[in-house]
Write a protein that binds this DNA or RNA. Structure first.
Lengths: 203, 203
DNA sequence: AATAAGGTTAACCATTTGGTTAATTCCTTT
DNA sequence: AAAGGAATTAACCAAATGGTTAACCTTATT
């Protein structure tokens, strides 16, 4: 007895995989059906239209995307702790779901309005993070700078290597997949070490 | 008397604009023709097929993308100089052509093989940069770390804010386009300041 | 001015694609 | 086991789309 029928789950898995590989426009309903080992009519039976199906997949992806960093604040004490958690949760997430960054970036780009509603209902609260960082800076625990800049930098360092993986793999690692993989795995630590000098010793 | 006929140029401009907005799969030949104010048959007359047209647009975009950083080395003396040039040339490029990052990232993702040939014929030489950085580190002019890591970080910080602009605009700047714009404009300096501590004073 | 060649257009075509439908199977409830 | 509803399927449909074609226009050369 499951909330989602097995078929529904199978469809969502297939759809997620095809949509992130080819995008909304490039995906074919028939291909999704094939990957799910199911009749194409079932897609419409469960989700009515391609757009509705995509909307669902996108929403679920987007909701995994943002909350990480907010959560890591509420659970953390020191700045060091916060940075470790923020970076760590992103890197872990993208190691497990490498399709997420480019999927979100691509689709937000071709239809920016799509996230408007998700941001509102999703409770995205960047303000909390900005204020947290500003606090720590004023307390002299973090190098003073534009907190938005720091936030963007942390996100850039955490996300870009995953979004740009195919490029990085070919242009910087000469196509050596294994090297790239361990490089990405280590990111959790290297990004933190890279940012560590921003933390001011408490004494 | 031009090398490229006026029509050819008009088509390429329209194609670039549509392709970067909607991607290869999402773009419509009719829409490209409309934006170029010409008959759809002209697209095929000049470029034979949608794929050929896309290939051309993508190639031109990709060739703008990479050489920047390599060039900035050959022309620069000190490490400080190098960082300034590398970051500056990227930020300038993306301020003028904001569609570039996401366009390249998206299309490379949905067809990674596409860049194989371009990398070879395009003379992409990451080795030069890696070695340059390693040299400087060994000379004690740059903080010691994995040079590939540093390279990826510089690229991440330079590119991501442009690739993720729609996201950043809505999630971190509450939709205030003007703020985002000046934020991005200042990036040239802020990224450099951010990385400056890596440079070791020469004395 | 006649001619030829390239540029341009409207109409057309075959295929692909999202979506529908009506019939069939499966499962649960009585 | 009969019935009724949900799940599933094959066949089908209309619209969209990349691409073609044949006629027409423009321009430069003689």
């Amino acid at each position: 007895m499951e909330l989602k029928s097995d078929t529904e789950k199978v469809i969502l898995d297939a759809a997620r995989s095809i949509f992130s590989e080819k995008g909304l426009a490039g995906a074919r309903m028939q291909e999704i059906a094939d990957r799910a080992n199911i009749n194409k009519a079932m897609l419409h039976y469960y989700f009515r239209s391609k757009d509705k199906l995509f909307e669902r997949v996108f929403k679920e992806a987007f909701q995994e995307f943002w909350p990480q960093i907010t959560k890591s604040i509420l659970e953390s004490g020191t700045v060091e702790d916060f940075l470790k958690r923020a970076i760590g949760s992103y890197v872990d997430l993208f190691m497990n779901k490498p399709y997420l960054p480019i999927f979100i970036l691509s689709e937000v780009n071709s239809n920016p309005d799509r996230i408007e509603s998700l941001i509102k209902e999703g409770g995205v609260q960047p303000q909390i993070i900005i204020e947290y960082l500003q606090d720590k800076m004023e307390q002299g625990l973090l190098k003073k700078m534009n907190p938005r800049e720091l936030l963007v930098n942390v996100i850039s360092l955490s996300i870009f290597p995953f979004a740009g993986r195919p490029l990085i793999e070919r242009m910087i690692f000469n196509g050596d997949k294994e090297s790239v993989n361990s490089f990405l795995k280590e990111r959790k630590h290297t990004i933190f070490e890279f940012l560590k000098p921003l933390i001011i010793e408490n004494h």
